[in-house]
Nucleic acid binder design. Sequence first.
RNA 1: CCGGAUGUGGUGAAAUUGGUAGACACGUCAGACUUAGGAUCUGAUGCCGUAAGGUGUGGGGGUUCGAGUCCCUCCAUCCGGACCA
Length: 980
Amino acid sequence: MEYRFRDIEKKWQDWWKSNNVYKVSNDSPKPKYYVLDMFPYPSGAGLHVGHPLGYIASDIYARFKRLKGFNVLHPMGYDAFGLPAEQYAIEHGIHPAISTENNINNFRKQLDNIGFCFDWSREVRTSEPNFYKWTQWIFLNLFHSFYNRKTNKAEPIENLIKIFEAEGNYAELRSPNSELFSAAEWKSFDELKKQNILMDYRLSYCGYGEVNWCEALGTVLANDEVINGVSERGGHPVVKKKLRQWYLRITEYADRLLEGLQKVDFSDSMKEMQSNWIGKSSGAEIEFLVRNQKSGISLRVYTTRPDTIFGVDFMVIAPEHELVEQIKTSGQAKAVDEYIAYVKSRSERERMAEKKITGVFTGSYALNPFNVREIPIWISEYVLIGYGTGAIMAVPCGDQRDFLFAKHFNIPITNIIGSHYNGDEANPTKDAVLENSDFINGMVMKDAIDVVIQKLEEKGIGVRKVNYKMRDAAFSRQRYWGEPFPIIWKNGIAESLDDSELPVLLPHLDDLKPGPDGEGPLSNLAEWKNYKDGTREVNTMPGYAGSSWYFLRYMDPDNDKEFCSRKASDYWGQVDLYIGGTEHAVGHLLYSRMWTKFLYDMGLISHEEPYKRLVNQGMIQGSSRFVYRLNPEGSEEHIKKVREKYPNQIFFSYGLYEKYLAIGKASPWNFTPIVDQQFPGYIFKDEEGSDHINVSKIHVDVNIVDGVELDTKAFKKWKGGEFADAEFIYEDDGKYICGVEVEKMSKSKFNTVNPDDLVMKYGADTFRMYEMFLGPVEMSKPWDTKGIEGVHRFLKKLWRLFFKESSQVSPVGGDLEGAVWNEEKATDAELKVLHKTIKKIEEDTERFSFNTGVSTFMICVNDLTDLKCYKKEVLEQLLILLAPYAPHVSEELWSVLGNSGTVLDASFPKWNDKYLKETSKAYPVAINGKTRTELTLALDITQQQVEEIVMKDAIVTKWLEGKQPKKIIYVKNKMINVVV
RNA sequence: CCGGAUGUGGUGAAAUUGGUAGACACGUCAGACUUAGGAUCUGAUGCCGUAAGGUGUGGGGGUUCGAGUCCCUCCAUCCGGACCA
């Protein structure tokens, strides 16, 4: 009977479904284990071979843990709200609810094909009211909370009101925007004022701020959704705009998010990315008095290097700085105004692209607080209003930007670091001994930092200060396809809806055009917007709202009383293993960590970090294939001439293309190849000059290319016959070879490979194992289908340990025709193969090395084939090992051997040392690391016994020539070195 | 520019604590069985060399009896952040 994977896989997938094999209970005596995948955004493009990589890895691990006796939670769901569905709706006229539903169904079908062990009864969709009800509920909890800096945790806003009523607002409580007031003053404020003050403390709050506004998408974007000044989705330009927005006060959690990284098992690069994003730096804020016609102005700067205070040669403030108007002198007013106008005319993108040194002198001087030296104040766009105080003290001998600025504008440079400064570039060292520095002369810089800060604080002109790059996260979108806010506006006050009014359903809307004044589409729906005696908030929540807590919902998906019962979250606890891509490093992962900390502060869950261990699967890149078409270009006459001779499209094989270029030989058309930088390829020019033949590189579907060889027949049919008339110039061996480049996998590059096709051709088990066999899960690599045959061959070989293959067609299951397996007792040699495999598979799987795991199976099956071992005793155990990797064939053969139920309910075999011990082993011996011989020694012997045997060995004694060895090094179990 | 990662045959890659580098697989070559094979099986396969032998983990240097592995330095590729004071 042959290995009929299609029937087998269909059979077991149906069986798993109808027997609820993967349904997980919250009530089990077994220890729990939670394996989670980053749930997908169901895009219209469907799955390509890159998507399932992480799912397969987690699936293997989840099954493995189940075999090891854990109660494993392994759920899946959909991150279904978001911008792309809405963009798609606008472009194609399909309502997001419909397209999302379609895409989900399509995803599900593709996922089911691969045979995952997800517990689909726990599926969540962020766009479902029974899910986003709780997203809204958590949002309201954030809204009703503030961060108490004294207790260092989130608390109900009532606590803050009590403090205000009793003590008023004081410095330690103060939020940057809020004023200080006494308890009595607080009581005298009217409601609007009180609410405005409270808004400065709420963990989700509404405020005005500079936001990233994307005109093309018609919405604001969070900082991590903007890459190099353009939107992550679509690459549209993004500008700064002041708008009323909802925010998440994530900055209050900056320190805890940073500290928490030490408690979790993430990769170094992931931790690095997060801590860079948080961007904690410590230093001081220093007050500089400004000397000009108006008195009493002071300029506050932030610096991490207060030790360089005597090296300050100028100050720079951001063009948007609030003191610009007051600081500019009448003499410089014109120049300053012109400069500000210039800066405004430049987009964010231009600024980043061309880093010109620009700036203008304000005419005013600041005074160094220690020696009252006059320091000119400049304005320049290289100082950002958003970071620190928007003003800096410039130390050109220590900071390269300051240095270049000083050189450019001929500002004299003070050297405070002696020979460490060479006059050609700044030196940011902290190890120099200070010079020209008044009371810190002679001190090492890094020691001087604290001394200066102390002195500043004593004199009341500065304060120690920690700064973060991270900003509060913009939490509203002017879009339709997201969670509505449970907020009503009344007389300028945001009021929360009552829990009983949740969920606030997203109303149906056919026309998704934006509302007036930069508001979202919901603004157009008056009957929905007007609610009770106020108006609803018409913005919606961003894509990351639902994903910030979805991992908790899986624990208790049907609960309609709570977002997740305490009992369920206590049982499942942290996600033990979280698998996903690095692209969420600073977005989703930070937000979900913050939400978890918040829920922990509120006493709603018992753990503070959501993910215990994070594994980042690598990206599978596309391996694009190209054909090279010759296009005549230039005068009409020339084109006609060429076309007369060659009426069809001519394609050049890659090898020839390369060859002609390499040797500079004339092509068959006598066009001399020359390199032309203007074109993305090469140009073949004719002798006359302007007329030439351009070679265009065309993406060709990887699925009609076998390795690098083009299937020319399929090519002619491809794209509805666009290339039906193609003629080919072949290699010498008559093949048409394509060019290869690694790019991002995308439909437009024709380099996507659909898993469905591979599953159809080779089966899900082969596909799963091949994806793992490609290399370490964490590594990015281009997809290459060549090689899948090897894995398929392995499964067929495995099959032949159970059945003789015959061409006769037999029904699946129950029919044991051609069975070769037997119940004989296994020999030691066979058990050795088995136990070696058990040990290796356990280790490989545990340390996530699935690629070597697959190899281990191949070696095992090769060995068993060599031994002609068809014994049930061995094979049965092997099937248990294989069940996580190739679940379908394992189930089939497991039942063939007469077992009932799923193989996953078996327990993972234990390996026995007894079978792994060698009776004897050859040890190479090296003398002075040069010469080698082999000795045969027993396995468990002592160092002393080894030395005795070595010294008795004929070859060794001959080498030693009577000399005594200095030492004999017995290295573990392999090598002995004799040093003379 | 800063930070992180990676660099091993024709290809994907193994080598868990420093211990016979290249497991396993693809590809290639040769052979067997075949009317045929894109089926299956056997053998060979890092490179140079007919061979003995030499050489070999991006380059250079170091530690060690011994280095793919540890240290220094340079180079290349990928990813992330970039006027963050």
